[in-house]
Design a protein around this nucleic acid. Structure first.
Length: 399
RNA sequence: GCGUCGGUGGUAGAGUGGUCAAAUACAACAGACUGUAAAUCUGUCGGCCUUAGGCCUACGAAGGUUCGAAUCCUUCCCGACGCA
């Protein structure tokens, strides 16, 4: 993998660049659609490509359980398996430590709001007896499969081994994505664990990376705490990773400062991936603070639930007012959906639970986000980042 | 014409003397969704009052029995089926 910076935003950490992998090139900043189980839900790879996506991201844990990483390896790797010819990434399973662990059965997400302080009270979620499918040990994490109840112990070595079988161009170190509701003491403990796992992931990767085709990214954690975030960035940057992920929990309101703390420390010449973040305002925030890559399930998942982006904010296509609205989601949008279908038709598809509704909404949302990041990239090249950001957000946030 | 069974909220369908403004499902209306346990989840869903709660109108219609009726009785209307 090679990373070349083409242009920087003046007086900021932001930059535009190009990354070359053995499966082709992608241009940063980039939005990476999420294909957890080797499929962008509701779309064919051709549709994903036509949207303009350059790279997709699959998940280690899910593909390990089904169909099994051996199957994917024998198919020729995740790209070949799913008929995606471009570059690919796999996430390590670290997010499932959170989603199937601390967050299991609860209403917590990795991004919280300070304006809802109840979400930040650790006691509220201190129910160690509550069932969870992921249990953290010092050596790794024990997962109880949501598919058949079987138990699987994933260590950093195991995660890297699976990821090498999956054969993506970029893989991630095994980490612990912490809940925003954990207290500082826990965040610190978890961070120590993630750091040890980072070293072990790297050792295993070096062992397996004989053909030198796969790049490993280390992950910075530390929750919302400045000290821990900086400590983590310092630690991870000193290891021989090819790039970095910024993971874990954030508060919406101070995500930008957290990203900035980290990227001021990480080496400029290596790419940075902000894991699991991708709402429009977050993309501007991330790019401005030095993020090169984003992935997020929001555009695809929201689309399936009828929530679609417009340049004036999100709308819910299921709302009664769209039943006889023969205009487009966004009259200026160039996507296949907006060029061909009305809100009334989409409304009908969603109310009728027709799967085409999910497909058309996903095409629109992914186009919207992928294209937004492309426009952000172009604005950097044109030295108009701030103008573009202000103009976009003014429209997007107006009610 | 006789007989049997039945008529419950937008729909289907529980309930068969009080704990019933009425289970449940669907529909409807709104909200959430940030490294995908997610084509999912949450809330509202007779009317009025700002909540606890209270008041009013409601289980085909009208009467009646009862302290109390969606539930029991009478008549009527409507539907399905059976027999003529």
């Amino acid at each position: 993998m090679e990373f070349k910076i083409e242009k920087k935003i003046e007086n900021s950490l932001g930059r535009a660049g190009v990354i070359t992998t053995s499966h082709g090139v992608f241009h940063t900043p980039v939005f990476v659609p999420v294909a957890t189980k080797a499929s962008i839900k509701a779309l064919t790879p051709e549709q994903v490509r036509d949207i303009g996506a350059e790279i997709v991201l699959g998940n280690t844990y899910h593909l390990y359980l089904q169909p099994g990483d051996g199957v994917v390896r024998n198919a020729g790797g995740i790209g070949k398996f799913m008929n995606w010819t471009g570059p690919t990434i796999t996430d390590s399973g670290g997010f499932q430590v959170f989603s199937l662990g601390a967050a299991y059965g609860k209403e917590i997400s990795k991004v919280t709001k300070i304006t809802d302080p109840s979400l930040l009270i650790p006691e509220r979620f201190d129910d160690s007896l509550a069932p969870r499918l992921a249990k953290i040990g010092n050596d790794g994490v024990s997962f109880k499969s949501h598919l058949d109840g079987s138990v699987h112990y994933i260590t950093p070595e195991k995660s890297i081994e699976i990821q090498h079988n999956l054969g993506a161009d970029i893989i991630f170190a095994f980490d612990e994505c912490t809940s925003p509701s954990e207290d500082l003491k826990y965040q610190e403990e978890a961070l120590e664990r993630t750091h040890r796992w980072a070293e072990r992931s790297l050792i295993e990767h070096k062992k397996l990376n004989i053909e030198n085709k796969i790049s490993l990214f280390g992950i910075v954690q530390g929750g919302r705490d400045e000290g821990l975030r900086k400590k983590s960035a310092e630690f991870i940057k000193n290891l021989d990773f090819d790039g970095f992920g910024i993971g874990g929990s954030f508060a919406k309101e101070d995500m930008s400062t957290a990203v900035k703390w980290v990227n001021e420390i990480l080496p400029e010449e290596k790419p940075r991936h902000l894991l699991g973040i991708g709402e429009p305002e977050d993309l501007f925030m991330g790019v401005e603070n030095g993020v090169d890559m984003f992935d997020c399930v929001a555009p695809t998942r929201s689309a399936r639930n009828g929530s679609v982006y417009t340049r004036h904010g999100k709308i819910n296509i299921l709302n009664a007012k769209f039943r006889e609205d023969f205009s487009k989601i966004d009259e200026q949008c160039e996507c296949y959906t907006c060029k061909n279908y009305t809100n009334a038709y989409l409304s009908h598809l969603f109310h009728g639970k027709e799967m085409l509704g999910s497909t058309l909404a996903t095409i629109h949302n992914l186009y919207f986000i992928v294209n937004l990041v492309k426009q952000i990239r172009q604005s950097i090249l044109d030295e108009k980042f701030y103008e573009f950001k202000d103009a976009f957000l003014r429209d997007y946030q107006q009610k």
